[in-house]
Design a protein around this nucleic acid. Structure first.
Lengths: 167, 167
DNA sequence: AATAAGTTTCAATTATTTTTGAAAGTTTAA
DNA sequence: TTAAACTTTCAAAAATAATTGAAACTTATT
């Protein structure tokens, strides 16, 4: 396989994976493209490589920057903006974890708390509901805390965790 | 908040969360409904509670069974089928992890292996590509193995992991 | 073996999400 | 202050994904 083909395959694969995880294809593709570029890339180049419109590129770059995993760069003497991706994988994973926790897990916990604390009356049905949602709340809370702890190791957290696990 | 309202809120929330994770809304809602039901539920009842068609219910129940997190049950003397969800959260998490690993992570690893092993020539661009995709391969492989190890504790793996982490 | 009870399938429809492209907005430089 | 270079916004269009519903299929009962 030659370089261009490999790069394309990687970008396509990352895009498809994104879709399966609720991230839009273009956003994942732009991220993939920036990850494997050794130099900052302009919007023009992104549009060209992925064959997408200016609006699409602009919106998805904005979203990636909101996630904190893509940065704007300025080149001396150049008017236009360039973009780079977070390339450190530990850091990338930490940022994605934090964002998803903030955006999805925390609000879900809030709802779980609410629904699990209703007055359960005496029917088996209601008791089971309260019991199950309470368990779910505890589980999700514990998982969320764990993720936090894991990524707090910061540098090479995955490796460090692996060692802890083996002991 | 009263029971019916709480139940509905839970089902809606779970459905919305599903969408954000690439799982279709109805599938997540059916799962939510079954999780908090203390008795097996018939297809009729699911259709009625979620206001969905028979075809939709059938297809999504099939998908949930393929994931191994919903089971068919038969009641003595009843012709129709009933459904229950895996209610043990450790077990549920293990099954979801295993399925996603099999369906998404493993195929991704295969592609990462392919693209990271191209002949890198001498350009900085190509070298960076190989370097970055190799790192990605290693990272994803390690994360996948870790998930496997974690869920191998099986019973109360999250709790056990928590204790290990604290040491 | 005919009928009834129940389930699955899938082409067509509907709903949702993504993408486009051009107008409006912003910034830099002359 | 004007014009050029570039970016953002958003309504409309296109693409994708989910849903319906009725026919086909399966299984149990008489």
């Amino acid at each position: 396989m030659e370089f261009k083909e490999a790069k394309n395959k990687f970008v396509q694969t990352w895009g498809a994976l994104g879709s399966q995880w609720g991230i839009n294809k273009t956003m994942a593709q732009i991220h993939a493209l920036l990850m494997v570029s050794n130099e900052p890339v302009s919007m023009e180049d992104i549009m060209e490589e992925l064959q997408i419109s200016r609006g699409n590129a602009s919106m998805n770059l904005r979203a990636l920057m909101d996630w904190g995993i893509v940065y704007k760069e300025f080149k001396a003497g150049e008017r236009k903006e360039f973009f780079t991706a977070e390339k450190d994988l530990d850091e990338l994973a930490v940022k994605i974890s934090r964002e998803r926790s903030k955006r999805e897990i925390k609000p879900t916990l809030k709802i779980l708390k609410e629904v699990s604390t209703i007055e359960a009356k005496d029917s088996a049905e209601e008791k089971h509901f309260v019991d199950q949602t309470t368990k779910l709340y505890d589980f999700v809370l514990k998982a969320d805390n764990m993720l936090d702890k894991m990524t707090e190791f910061n540098d090479n957290w995955l490796g460090k965790l692996f060692i802890k696990m083996m002991k």
